[in-house]
Simulated assay, not measured.
Amino acid sequence: MLTGKQKRFLRAEAHHLDPIFQVGKGGVNEAMLVQITQALRVRELIKVRILDNCEFDKRDVAAELAEGTDAELVQLIGLTVVLYKEAPKRENRRIELPKAK
């Protein structure tokens, strides 16, 4: 679980990122979750764009993405979802989070 300070830090880090995945009218599927999980393993922090033609509620899509990839939902702003998942190996970590108190 991320603290408020850590989420604020991650939002700042994600500000300059472009979305690398899109959720369309078909919603979230298993293949998409596998690809997002692989991207999170490498990048740790990604943005996903929910398209206007998506038939599902944006909050449900964001929760499904976070749960399906076992990642932390950092932010849902507009139709953009920011996800974070710490790299499994310490030497592969790119982002150093502020310490939780």
Rank of each mutant, 00 (worst) to 15 (best):
R49I: 05
R49H: 12
R49F: 10
I50S: 00
I50H: 01
I50M: 08
L51N: 10
D52R: 09
D52E: 14
N53F: 10
C54S: 15
C54Q: 14
C54H: 14
E55V: 08
F56T: 06
D57C: 13
D57T: 10
D57Q: 15
D57V: 12
R59S: 14
D60V: 06
D60P: 02
V61M: 08
V61A: 10
V61E: 07
A62Y: 00
A62I: 01
A62G: 09
A63K: 11
A63H: 09
A63V: 03
E64P: 04
E64H: 09
E64F: 02
E64G: 09
E64V: 06
E64T: 13
L65M: 12
A66K: 14
A66D: 12
T69L: 07
D70G: 07
A71V: 07
A71K: 09
E72N: 13
E72Y: 05
E72T: 01
E72W: 07
L73I: 03
V74D: 00
Q75M: 11
Q75T: 03
Q75N: 15
L76R: 10
L76K: 10
I77Q: 05
I77L: 02
I77S: 05
I77A: 03
G78K: 06
G78M: 07
G78L: 09
G78I: 11
L79N: 14
L79E: 12
T80W: 00
T80V: 14
T80F: 00
T80K: 04
V81C: 01
V81Q: 00
V82T: 15
V82I: 13
L83Y: 02
L83W: 02
L83E: 00
Y84A: 03
Y84M: 07
Y84V: 03
K85P: 06
E86W: 02
E86Y: 02
E86M: 11
E86K: 12
A87S: 14
K89G: 04
K89F: 13
K89H: 12
R90D: 02
E91R: 07
E91T: 01
N92I: 01
N92R: 11
R93C: 10
R94H: 06
R94D: 01
